[in-house]
Design a protein around this nucleic acid. Structure first.
Lengths: 219, 219
DNA sequence: TAGAGAATGACACTGAGTCTCAAAAAGTGT
DNA sequence: ACACTTTTTGAGACTCAGTGTCATTCTCTA
């Protein structure tokens, strides 16, 4: 997970930041192990057919520990999805806004996509494939995105001096998600072919094509 | 709580279409009774604190019947939400498209809002208030809307000869939902003040304001 | 190295959702 | 009215996600 590999102080530490206290590193390791096992097991056996007990056993922790690490069975499966939006929200928070907002959102999202760790691609593809197979996972993703939109609106509202429920903020945060959705879907369908650059290119194209969408006409 | 006086053989049948076979009318009556009881009980006791058994008991049916009627505890609580989108999808399907699509979507949604039964207002307000109190309900609503968007894209794609995954269809269906969301939220917050006309007015305003949202700038 | 504070595992418990089967409808003929 | 078929229902057993408790075992700090 998490936010961007802080340069390892000595050699590459396979998991976890060497500067963190042992306790935290251990928790992080468990978290990663559970998320990885979730992707593996759910993909192999199916989401519904895999119990939380099995998942926890496979990582040699108790069910208690699982639910202390993730709020639900679904959450473990969509860590890669969570990562994008965590990074994006942080980037949005950090950025000073001036000029047109919509292109700024495009930039921020591209920035976030670039900042993700190298192994994210693979996990994201597996996650999205999984999400297509289980309604519960789709539901969870939608719930999460809803929360992300709410937070993005709050951040933008603060920066722009607007009401967080301003229609324009709804539209902009919604369309950011739409651009990502469509771009990522195609990227995943092609097996993440071309790597991160391809995703960025698709993302840029999507943002560019959005305004004209409103003028679509029949006949 | 009780099923509503079984229709006396002569006068106006309060619920259910007299032309339907008895079996179907009965199912409908049960469905309405469960949905009403769900709103009442969940509002009074809280969604989590109310069990499906209680809910079923209050309508004097078994838990089995509840789950034959609704796929989940959540679904019973958001019937009013379901109704809007069912009517909208039907209206969209029925409509012949020509000219600009976006205004047509606005029209269709207004049409749907008009076609809803008179008692819908009250139920919708109660539903939305409830949804704000329980994450599980919000999740369900989002899942449902996702499905509605998918179907709307499919319908539009067929009428326009496009790919259902065309970015423009994503944008248009998404923005339709956004317009509804924002309009309905304000309408509900004001207690559905002014009735259906007020909702329609807000909806029209929202659709009108959407295009300019893309030009929002800071500074 | 002792003791404070946090994380863990074991276990009991609630409640949603599924499944099966027998009883009770409702629909259909005669 | 009557038997006969089909659908719907209720009862109850069952699985599993998720919560709460408590004793045990760790990590941190002094």
């Amino acid at each position: 997970m998490t936010v961007m590999p802080t340069a390892p102080s000595v050699p590459t530490s396979p998991s976890g930041d060497r500067s963190l206290p042992l306790r935290e590193r251990k928790k992080l390791r468990t978290r990663r192990a559970l998320a990885d096992a979730a992707l593996t097991l759910f993909t192999a056996k199916g989401f519904d057919a895999t119990t939380v007990d099995e998942l926890a056993d496979s990582v040699e922790v108790s069910k208690s520990t699982f639910f202390r690490t993730f709020p639900s069975k679904e959450a473990a499966a969509i860590e890669a999805e969570t990562e994008v939006w965590t990074v994006w929200l942080a980037a949005l928070e950090a950025r000073g806004l001036s000029g047109p907002v919509f292109p700024a959102l495009c930039d921020t999202l591209a920035e976030a996509a670039t900042a993700l760790p190298p192994d994210w691609d693979e996990r994201y593809v597996a996650t999205r494939r999984l999400v297509m197979t289980a309604a519960a996972l789709l539901s969870q993703v939608e719930l999460q995105r809803n929360d992300v939109k709410r937070r993005a609106r709050a951040t933008l509202a603060a920066k722009l001096g607007l009401d967080p429920e301003d229609l324009r903020l709804h539209v902009l945060s919604e369309l950011t998600m739409t651009a990502w959705s469509v771009s990522a879907r195609e990227w995943v369908r092609s097996g993440a072919d071309g790597g991160r650059e391809t995703l960025l290119a698709r993302l840029h194209d999507a943002f560019t094509a959005i305004p004209a969408s409103l003028d679509l006409a029949a006949g």
